[in-house]
Write a protein that binds this DNA or RNA. Structure first.
Lengths: 305, 305
DNA sequence: TCAGTCCATAGATAAAATCTATTGCAAGTG
DNA sequence: CACTTGCAATAGATTTTATCTATGGACTGA
């Protein structure tokens, strides 16, 4: 089996036709025919059923193609990263939970690089995907939190995937509310205080995934629940509906605006926010720069709380 | 780039020495040398620094090796699945949460196949790994549950990874306790009832991960917490310490023994237990057999509840 | 200094991938 | 019913790649 053979069968499956696939691959049709035959005979399977009117993928072939695409996805990562295909385009990928400080660091990194050709990805997603992205090198760094409930399970997952966790800071749980919410007068809040108000969370965000908010928002106080995908939407609803959301309390006024305030939440819990890196791979200069930005930004946050 | 080249550099990195790596790979040393040089020049990187006393991996090379190992892991899956390496050894992999019915189905599948050469894996693990295993085709099928809290986030993750979910049955939360526990007299239990007793859970098991037990076992009632890795240990402690654990209530006396009983838990929640399959791949005959066993076993469970 | 170890180079050779040209087959067409 | 068309398979030549043997050079340690 070679990388080329896998590319070939995937292209053939897409085109549904060996002749046109050969054209697309810039090789002669008999070359493609024999390449496929060889792959099939190597594993003793029939990937395509041939007829005079093109080819059709067999069920067996469909399965094999599933594996092939997995491999190709992975090799594409190498090609993209090391091949001059992107002609010097600077690339950076980060997966994080919904933290404004992470976005801020991302923006700062962009400013500092000052490249005129780049491709940066900020993947705000759930814990599962963060770990998965970093483990499979789709992202160079991930940002997530640990607390006493998820710590064991997350640490084990990180270990299993050969990832390292480096803490940035520890935060106490905070509640985000609108400036004009009735709750804004209180200095700190309890779960009881929050009960009458709508709870906001991300559909696939840090709150909803794994552990944290579930810990605090037990079945008792989930009468009104709003789930959104977008942070801006969340903040709009927060203000418009006197809602609340539970977070690390790392707020940045420039990003969130002056209409959102954070209040301490009285619960016996903490969040240790940090970043994860692949164990085997040395961080790229861009990643190192990003980490130092994160560190300087969160040093500021530490003073706040 | 070819797979051979990736295999070569990984072997060289392991051996720390081109000559002995060549021996291990059954090729001549100059062949290996040129294969590596070609790979390096293709991407314009230096993977190894050569000296008269063997080689050393450069930081750049270390990173590249990280990617290479990822690709090789993936290709190994194909080789293992399709190559006669295992000489007709029947293979089957399942990833599941800690359900006794899943183990039962696994055992039944083994009995039915009656092969004299096989390699079956029962991976009882956390939700993250189940999804990851099936998404990356390390397991052919996964078993997990959805409830109203995790449903959205899990379904999104499944969609992102092109996995399908098929429900098997819906269970109400149950508490497992020892036959002689003081709680065994009651017909059903509330969270208040459980408060004085030690709560048992798996370190990386279905209870601890994602959503479920956290929902029910809020901060209020986690005074005594015991975390174990093994189901047998869990049951031992359950009996010895009058502990409890929260589960789907799908109990099987043959597997768990007569000393464990299940009681209904009075909470407004449910668990929809089902299996996940890769979207692109047709289930193998063995997988189909497993599914039909699961279905017949859980049909019985449905009657229980 | 001299054998030992290790990687690099050169040139030959074997293996593979790919090419052109052609065949065969079935479906559609006038 | 011959005729064209579209597609995959085959044959044989050719180029490219992989690997081999033999040897060189550079450093190491007795």
């Amino acid at each position: 089996m070679t990388y080329k053979q896998l590319q070939y069968i995937v292209t053939v499956a897409e085109e549904g036709n060996i002749t046109s696939a050969a054209k697309k691959l810039f090789i002669a049709q008999p070359s493609l025919t024999s390449a496929i035959r060889e792959l099939e005979s190597e594993y003793g399977i029939t990937i395509f059923s041939r007829s005079n009117k093109g080819i059709k993928t067999t069920p067996e072939g469909e399965e094999f193609l599933g594996y092939a695409r997995q491999v190709l996805d992975q090799t594409t990562l190498i090609e993209e990263r090391y091949k001059g295909k992107n002609s010097g385009k600077l690339k950076f990928f980060v997966s994080a939970q919904h933290y404004s400080f992470a976005v801020e660091a991302f923006v700062e990194l962009l400013k500092r690089t000052g490249a005129d050709k780049y491709e940066f990805h900020m993947r705000e997603t759930q814990t599962f995907n963060i770990i998965d992205d970093v483990a499979h090198l789709r992202s160079e760094i991930g940002i997530l939190y640990l607390n006493k409930f998820n710590e064991e399970v997350i640490r084990k997952t990180l270990r299993d995937n050969n990832l390292s966790f480096t803490p940035l800071f520890t935060a106490r749980p905070h509640v985000f509310i609108g400036k004009n919410s009735p709750l804004s007068k209180k200095k700190s809040l309890t779960l009881e205080d929050l009960k009458p108000y709508p709870r906001l969370s991300y559909e696939q965000g840090s709150h909803n995934s794994f552990y944290f908010s579930e810990e605090i928002l037990s079945t008792v106080d989930s009468d009104k629940e709003l789930v959104v995908l977008d942070r801006a939407t969340l903040f709009n609803l927060l203000i418009g509906l006197n809602g609340y959301t539970i977070c690390s309390g790392v707020i940045n006024e420039e990003l969130n605006g002056p209409n959102i305030i954070a209040k301490k939440l009285k619960v016996d819990d903490y969040m240790e926010i940090g970043y994860i890196l692949p164990g085997s791979i040395h961080p790229s200069p861009l990643t190192s720069e990003f980490i130092s930005i994160l560190e300087s930004l969160t040093r500021r946050s530490k003073q706040h709380h």
